[in-house]
């Protein structure tokens, strides 16, 4: 049951997009999201769609795989559309009881839907083509300037990558503890909300104790292997920009310029 949950749905294959520096992908995703809010006309969305289609094609991730993730946000999408459809004031088209659909509402709903779909597609493309530890590496490097403001960037990224490593282990452990308590007649599925919350105690206590023990063991193991924080540390896999990364940055800049210029020229 619990082992079905997968985190960071990385799609393993080899493509240009996969081999890009994670920093490029992080910046690109950010730029793409910004562009969605800058673009406010039809042409802008066409350009965004083309850009997205190109990246999907280059990533070699089957579109089916990308859009499967869309199912989970279907309700969110529907809700946003309904709200925009009925609650935007403007020229009325149809009126049903107290609700009125306006011209502006229709336009707004369509725009929001497109934005949301693009946004989800764009960011899931990033997680699909980047391993979680690459992602943390990229974040660490990008956020490095924050160290000037005493933000413990290295520690945060170390914590993230340890969490990523231990989530599957703790998931499996949760499964085992659940079964061990079910074998003693515990019931996690029926009863009132309060009863169910109470029934979690026999699950959570062993889980927390185990997590603390693991944390303790791990801290000791890290110390034993000379871990002393980020200072004086070298990297086995340092992030170095290559030609394709510079090229990718160029493409992103061109894309942003195009979106902005198109918006200005037409309106």
């Amino acid at each position: 049951m619990l082992r079905d949950i997968t985190l960071g749905q990385y799609y393993r294959t080899e493509s240009v997009i996969h081999s890009l520096d994670p920093r490029v992908k992080l910046v690109a995703t950010f730029a793409f999201i910004v562009s969605l809010f800058v673009a406010n006309n039809f042409i802008g969305y066409v350009i965004a769609a083309l850009f997205l289609a190109m990246v999907i094609y280059l990533s070699k991730v089957p579109p089916k795989f990308i859009f499967r993730g869309m199912k989970t946000i279907f309700f969110l999408l529907l809700l946003t559309m309904v709200f925009n459809l009925f609650l935007t004031p403007g020229t009325p088209i149809v009126s049903v009881w107290k609700f009125t659909i306006t011209q502006e509402g229709l336009k707004m709903a369509a725009m929001m839907a497109v934005r949301l779909v693009f946004l989800i597609t764009g960011s899931s493309l990033m997680t699909l083509t980047t391993t979680p530890n690459h992602l943390t590496d990229g974040l660490e490097r990008l956020l490095r300037p924050l160290r000037l403001f005493k933000v413990p960037v290295h520690e945060i990224s170390m914590m993230m990558s340890i969490a990523l490593r231990f989530i599957p282990i703790l998931m499996e452990e949760t499964d085992k503890i659940m079964k061990a308590q079910m074998a003693r007649g515990a019931d996690f599925e029926s009863g009132s909300l309060i009863k169910r919350a109470k029934s979690l105690v026999p699950l959570l206590v062993p889980l927390f104790i185990s997590a603390f023990r693991r944390a303790n063991d791990l801290a000791m193991a890290m110390e034993a292997r000379c871990y002393k924080g980020g200072d004086g540390r070298t990297k086995m896999k340092p992030l170095i920009y290559e030609k394709r990364d510079r090229l990718a940055y160029l493409v992103i800049i061109l894309y942003l310029v195009l979106i902005v210029v198109m918006g200005r020229i037409l309106f």
Binding site: P132, R214, D217, A221, C226, Y227, K228, G232, T234, K235
Partner: peptide, 25 residues
């Protein structure tokens, strides 16, 4: 140490083996 799960830090085998040398600079 005793528990194999609680002393592996890396998410990929080679990265874990590199952890010690990384710390040593």
């Amino acid at each position: 140490f005793q528990n194999p799960d609680n002393q592996i830090i890396g998410q990929v085998v080679e990265e874990d083996v590199g952890f010690g040398p990384e710390n040593m600079g």
